[in-house]
């Protein structure tokens, strides 16, 4: 079954790239059939992604959440899930143009990782890990979507806002809706991020005897949490729109840095994941 992984990864990549292309053509020609094909492709990609996670789960007989590759697969899965949700609920097809590039870039990165199955070290064999990583995935999925919505906000604003003659601007949702959706999605992701931090700390207490060590991964997760809590509080002071969008983008940069940057650039006890 191990050899199935690479074909699945390639199929996944192809499905996402095709979906992106169909959404892009939809944006130029506005044909319903094209849009439906694009949607179908995303659902197909989601099914493939789920399938790959199941394969991986069977290979390691557990939840596949133990290394960068497995976490990345779950990350993409969660982004697609949140995307499908808002696409279904708010009919936000245009957001695909901004969400799918993130997914495709992540996939291109994952394709280069080693997919060999290795046994997990003892510290990783913990129930806490499962909740810890699942909530991380949920939070990161939500933040990726809010990032895309914030970029859309800035792009639309830059193109002239509601009354812009620009085609891209005119098919995007109202600025106000983009802003509020972004807020909503962050509001959904923030508790997940909080539970991620808590379960991570509890696990560290059991496993290393210390709930907080200020290691780079922990510190960056905390930075991410701080940035999004700043986002929620500036909204209370009436900062919306552009300023909020910029903080949401900074927040997602922190997410990406916590996920990838720390693993590659900053050494620490977390560096296995």
């Amino acid at each position: 079954m191990e050899s199935l992984q690479t074909p699945f990864m390639v199929a996944l990549l192809v499905a996402y790239v095709l979906a992106f292309m169909f959404y892009f053509i939809t944006f130029i020609y506005a044909k319903v059939a094209l849009k439906n094909t694009a949607k179908l492709l995303i659902v197909l990609a989601f099914v493939l992604n789920t399938g790959l996670l199941v394969i991986r789960g069977l290979l390691i007989s557990g939840l596949p959440l133990r290394n960068l590759f497995e976490f990345g697969l779950f990350f993409i899965w969660a982004i697609t899930l949140v995307f499908l949700f808002i696409e279904y609920k708010f009919d936000l097809s245009v957001s695909a143009l901004f969400v799918l590039p993130i997914v495709i870039l992540l996939l291109l990165f994952l394709v280069n990782l080693d997919v060999t199955v290795r046994p997990a070290m003892p510290a990783l064999r913990s129930k806490w890990l499962i909740i810890h990583v699942l909530t991380a995935v949920l939070a990161y999925g939500a933040f990726a979507i809010s990032f895309a919505l914030s970029v859309m906000y800035l792009v639309k604003d830059w193109l002239g806002g509601e009354n812009s003659p620009n085609r891209l601007a005119s098919i995007m949702p109202r600025l106000e809706l983009l802003d509020e959706l972004s807020y909503k999605v962050i509001f959904l992701g923030m508790p997940a991020l909080t539970i991620m931090l808590v379960t991570g700390a509890v696990w560290a207490e059991y496993s290393w005897g210390r709930y907080w060590s200020w290691d780079p991964k922990e510190t960056w997760a905390l930075v991410t949490w701080f940035v999004y809590s700043a986002y929620l509080h500036i909204r209370l002071r009436g900062w919306k729109g552009k300023k909020a969008a910029i903080i949401s983008i900074v927040g997602f940069m922190a997410v990406i840095f916590t996920f990838l940057g720390v693993s590659y650039l900053l050494p620490g006890i977390h560096s296995y994941a």
Partner: peptide
């Protein structure tokens, strides 16, 4: 945030 980033 600044202190933490600086520290890492």
């Amino acid at each position: 945030v600044l202190a933490s980033v600086f520290a890492t």
